[in-house]
Amino acid sequence: MGRAKGAIVVDIEKCKGCNICVVNCPTDVIELSKEVNGKGYPYAYMENPENCTGCANCALVCPDGVIEVYRVIV
């Protein structure tokens, strides 16, 4: 049984920094950035990318649908 490795891509300009993906990430991958996007919101990014399993929980709860999830089995 291989181990799942994942990664997310966030549409930074559409992210509103609501933090809901951060609290719903089971492996504490996501954090909000210190910088802000064009609308003044901090945006989600992978703080600990090595922990991501590509479970897509963040993308499921993202109200704005700005997260794309990728997964490979290694």
Partner: peptide
């Protein structure tokens, strides 16, 4: 594994409909 190797169209599991 590098993140660039994971983020490829064939590995996509979820995106906005």
């Amino acid at each position: 594994m590098d993140i660039k190797d994971i983020i490829k169209p064939e590995n996509k599991v979820y995106s906005k409909t």
